[in-house]
Write a protein that binds this DNA or RNA. Sequence first.
DNA 1: ATTATTTTCGCAAACGATTGCGGCTTTTTC
DNA 2: GAAAAAGCCGCAATCGTTTGCGAAAATAAT
Lengths: 329, 329
Amino acid sequence: MANTTLKKIAQVLDISISTVSRALKNHPDISAATKQKVMELAETLDYEPNEMAVNLRSKNTKVIGVMIPSITNNFYDSFIAAAEEEARKAGYSLMILQSGDDPAAEKENLKLYRKSRVSAVFACLSHETTDVASYYKLKEVDIPVVFFDKVPDDHSFSRICIADEDAAVLAAKALIEKGKKNILAIFGNSQLSITKRRLKAFTDFFEQDKKIKLTVEYARSSSQAEEKTTHQFQSKEKPDAVFCMSDEILTGVMKSFQKLKISLPENCGVIALSDGFFPKLYYPEITYVETSGYQLGKLAFERMLQCLNGDKDPKELFVTPSLVNGGSL
Amino acid sequence: MANTTLKKIAQVLDISISTVSRALKNHPDISAATKQKVMELAETLDYEPNEMAVNLRSKNTKVIGVMIPSITNNFYDSFIAAAEEEARKAGYSLMILQSGDDPAAEKENLKLYRKSRVSAVFACLSHETTDVASYYKLKEVDIPVVFFDKVPDDHSFSRICIADEDAAVLAAKALIEKGKKNILAIFGNSQLSITKRRLKAFTDFFEQDKKIKLTVEYARSSSQAEEKTTHQFQSKEKPDAVFCMSDEILTGVMKSFQKLKISLPENCGVIALSDGFFPKLYYPEITYVETSGYQLGKLAFERMLQCLNGDKDPKELFVTPSLVNGGSL
DNA sequence: ATTATTTTCGCAAACGATTGCGGCTTTTTC
DNA sequence: GAAAAAGCCGCAATCGTTTGCGAAAATAAT
């Protein structure tokens, strides 16, 4: 079953293709009578403009690339959810590609984006990719790039981030308010700049109060977080609160707590940085500082629209975190 | 910075566009010398064929639509992960659209797929969408459709599913083997055919042993599952095992257990149908029957490739589940 | 040397939609 | 009634790639 084209409509009505095209676009040159006829026939024939042809002519695919480390991740999922909502409104589709935190795959993906002539790209750097040369290539062919979450230091790109420092401080404040005196803080991969930022803001904040004991640990996975937690809680001086830098760490900590039969908040307080999904899995629900992928997506798309409209100067925007009380602290 | 085209290369080398095109495709008509020159220039000019033009001519976008209820779901995420891996190998990209379990949005998406002239579509029905007329429209324009997970009854489509009956039976067997006598089984939305299939297989299996008390409950959300569990465990005859039809239910049940301070497996056994992510969040890890979205994705893509190669007869394929012991039973 | 055969390449027409420009009809204006 | 002005519409080029067909050039056969 062949698709209807302008040509087909033109043949049936015995008018020219251009007239059909203009009629459908409500061009003033075309008489009302002709428009009527064309529209009706288009309707019954279920005409849909062939996007490939439109794209070719307009040199615009109306597709936005989204590169993330992994799709199996709540935070990025909610980013995508938000971006897709907005994209749809603006007539764009998303082309999601995963880097798997592998710089080589990341480069491959960028190449694919160029080949596909996407209109723009949202990108979250894999690991500590410092060489953003491949991203410059996109710029050269006029494909705007908006980084989010894991962004490069390069100030020539637009970057949308969680205000990591604020988030860490918010958590620190909450811990102090609750009068916690022996805090275990678990952070992720210490090589990552996101870890460094959160770590610095967090520890700096405790400088003001020397009476609080702060133990910092690093865990690269959920199970590592579990081990470290278990280990800490087997010592004499058990922490009275745990700070988790991420969901991954939170789940590890909670698993350890279940094993050790530590119950919240009596035996120990817990606070995490999270988008909110995992904290709600537990009883009591975990108190967390919201680092919302969803809000990030909304903000990033807003910025992207500006870029698409020709605003080239790089901008750095932040989504501000907020504290959500669960009952674990 | 303009993109390089065949025309540009042709102009520089002062030969025709067709020659350039053929040279790059290693066409026998072109002399080795010419090929050499063309290839080299193409290399230095970083030539990439314009996909929009290629698509227009070939009427093939090399894009596969994937429609799922929600991207914020482990099961579908792993389906996508698998599909993307395979798609990339085969030179395809994915266009992921979410229906949000809303039939209207589902229809919108299908329209978008048609407009975008995707090469094929993977689809998971929203809720109990029974009217698959919109999918027939895709068939009419020769876009193959492969359903997965939530599939229609319509036998004229290819369908790839988890062998739900087998999975339910596997769980039932495990419960019986452990000598459980008072089982609480919580299922999802009773309107869904997936629920019906799992429910029937599960309950049928217990017909053989009348001495076992089986209580069936339904929960449409995690919090409903939590409520029902809490309620059941406040009665005199507490269940000695809980069966969870899905991750959503499992998380609700576990939350209730945390509240009631019920510890596994001493106080109660738990078994779930899951893809394995959530079961590993708890201590002890939950014993589950694996219903892998990843495997489903692999199998679905395999089938899709056949469809893309012209195999039109509908086929129904199943991925067979397996029991993974956690320690919760 | 002439014809037959290859080798090597260019012309032009697609794919489907868009649009500047110009032409043919009507209608308006003086 | 003739000229100017609208009103309507079609021609043809364009986006970049692919490909059947035919033509020129080079080589082989007679």
